[in-house]
């Protein structure tokens, strides 16, 4: 009989429609913003800078080596090195970025800056609800908007943060041991504590 194909298709549609009242799998609508799907841990959006401790300036891990600026494919990072130095987590004086801008309208969240950073200073954020009321100025994220604390990083990516903390603690230990073992060495300098609270 002509029309049996269409009737079979209608049976599928009916099964989906009626089933959506009973079967969780068939009702896939998420009533955003009242309900939100939990984001997986690996999810990445725009990058941000990490500082240790409470002070966004003294604890900033970035040493303005400009590797991320060079490797960024759409060239959305703009760094100006400072003239003076400040001590990093191992006590060694390092440069810091006087200006660190990311043009968020250009950044494509490719994560290459995170892969090439040798100092674990830039990581990927998860915040995607970033809408603002102005168009141009708000799309350039400057250093103070980008710098977030290590506690924030531990909250959003616990397993990655654990790895990074372990790596930095191991590096700090190795550097302290080397200094203590060197002949005629000065007592180890008071390093800025890494895993503060």
């Amino acid at each position: 009989m002509i029309g049996t194909g269409i009737l079979k298709g209608m049976a599928v549609t009916a099964r989906n429609f009626v089933g959506s009242y009973f079967d969780k799998e068939r009702l896939v609508t998420v009533q955003y913003p009242e309900e939100r799907n939990p984001l997986p841990e690996n999810y990445r959006n725009f990058p941000f800078l990490i500082y240790d401790g409470d002070d966004a300036h003294a604890g900033l891990r970035c040493v303005a080596c400009k590797i991320c600026e060079k490797e960024c494919p759409p060239q959305c990072i703009y760094i100006v090195k400072s003239e003076d130095k400040k001590p990093d987590y191992m006590g060694k004086p390092q440069f810091y970025p006087k200006v660190f801008d990311i043009d968020v309208s250009v950044c494509m969240s490719c994560q290459i800056c995170v892969e090439v950073c040798p100092f674990e200073a830039i990581k990927m954020d998860k915040d995607f609800e970033l809408s603002t009321r102005e168009r141009f100025d708000a799309l350039l994220m400057r250093k103070d908007a980008l710098a977030k604390s290590n506690d924030y990083y531990r909250r959003i990516s616990p397993s990655d943060a654990r790895e990074v903390d372990a790596k930095l603690a191991a590096a700090a230990e190795a550097a302290a041991k080397k200094k203590a073992a060197a002949p005629g060495a000065m007592p180890p300098a008071a390093a800025v504590p890494v895993a503060s609270n």
Binding site: G5, I6, V12, T13
Partner: peptide, 8 residues
């Protein structure tokens, strides 16, 4: 079932 036998 939805597509293949569908007369349209």
């Amino acid at each position: 079932q939805l597509i293949v036998g569908n007369e349209v």
